[in-house]
């Protein structure tokens, strides 16, 4: 079976005080190969938990995950991850960071150098290969993180708010970059974000999650990602369906947040 299958996954955290949190409850999802999925939801609804389970950093308390028929039991190069920030290796140059995955496998140096060169071009950092990580801006660092993940040629790319710490303009450029890469490489990408607009732009398919217990609340199929490839994203935002969908989702999340606040207040 091809693609990523999430089978009835639940995650319950036992708290030290005896209570427990149902971070995820009975999640069922099927993500096709080459799909671009964005995930939205109020804070604490279990997005990061879900991604960590997909990456194999956490074992779910119920259910299981399969990638192309293989059960996920731990981290694996087939499932690459782009973190929000701070996951690059400061003691290595940009090139060494990007080539980290292949060099761990013992790929010949020349081969690594060639693919690093190519990726530097794709993410627009041609002249920065020799630089150290701390010499780059935040946006450049995220491009390196993306390139590092791509260089390892994973089947699925998992991103947890990869653009969260960037300013609006850099963020827009990075969004275009993610779309380009998705189109060029045909990889499955799962992207978590807090920004509704970003979720709309970077999701063929969009999941809205709800908290307590963490679950899938609503699912959308959207045309904007296809439209955005190679196009001006601001143009895409002027699409007649964009504004209404954004408002609908914003209201949905707003209601959930309000419900949580209300509940904690009465609790």
């Amino acid at each position: 079976m091809s693609g990523l299958t999430i089978n009835d996954v639940s995650m319950t955290f036992e708290l030290p005080n005896g209570g427990s949190v149902e971070a995820l409850k009975n999640i069922n999802l099927n993500i096709k190969e080459g799909e671009l999925l964005s995930v939205l939801g109020p804070s604490g609804c279990g997005k990061t938990t879900l991604l960590n389970i997909l990456a194999g950093f956490l074992a779910p308390t119920g259910g299981e995950i399969d990638l192309n028929g293989d059960k996920v039991v731990g981290p694996h190069p087939a499932r690459g991850m782009v973190f929000q920030q701070g996951a690059l290796f400061e003691w290595m140059s940009v090139e060494e960071n990007i080539g980290f995955g292949p060099s761990m496998k013992g790929t010949p140096k020349a081969e690594i150098a060639a693919s690093v060169e190519e990726l530097l071009g794709i993410v627009g950092l041609q002249d920065f290969g020799q630089k150290m990580i701390y010499e780059l801006s935040g946006g450049m660092q995220q491009r390196v993180a993306l390139a590092r993940c791509l260089c390892n040629d994973p089947d699925v790319i998992l991103m947890d708010e990869p653009l969260g710490a960037l300013d609006a303009l850099t963020r827009e450029k990075m969004q275009s970059l993610v779309l380009d890469i998705w189109k060029k490489t045909g990889k499955t990408i799962i992207l978590i974000t807090h920004s509704v607009e970003e979720a709309l732009l970077l999701g063929e398919r969009l999941l809205v999650m709800a908290p307590r217990p963490g679950r899938v609340h609503k699912e959308y199929r959207l045309p904007f990602a296809e439209l955005g490839v190679g196009a001006d994203l601001r143009e895409v935002k002027r699409h007649k369906d964009f504004g209404p969908t954004r408002d609908e989702i914003l209201n949905m999340i707003w209601d959930m947040e309000e419900e949580i606040m209300g509940r904690t207040e009465t609790a």
Binding site: G56, Q84, A87, R148
Partner: peptide
């Protein structure tokens, strides 16, 4: 930071690496 270790595992590094 745990994200560095996670990143390295996801990139296929062994424990020794």
């Amino acid at each position: 930071s745990i994200s560095k270790v996670h990143a390295a595992y996801s990139l296929g590094a062994t424990k020794r690496q």
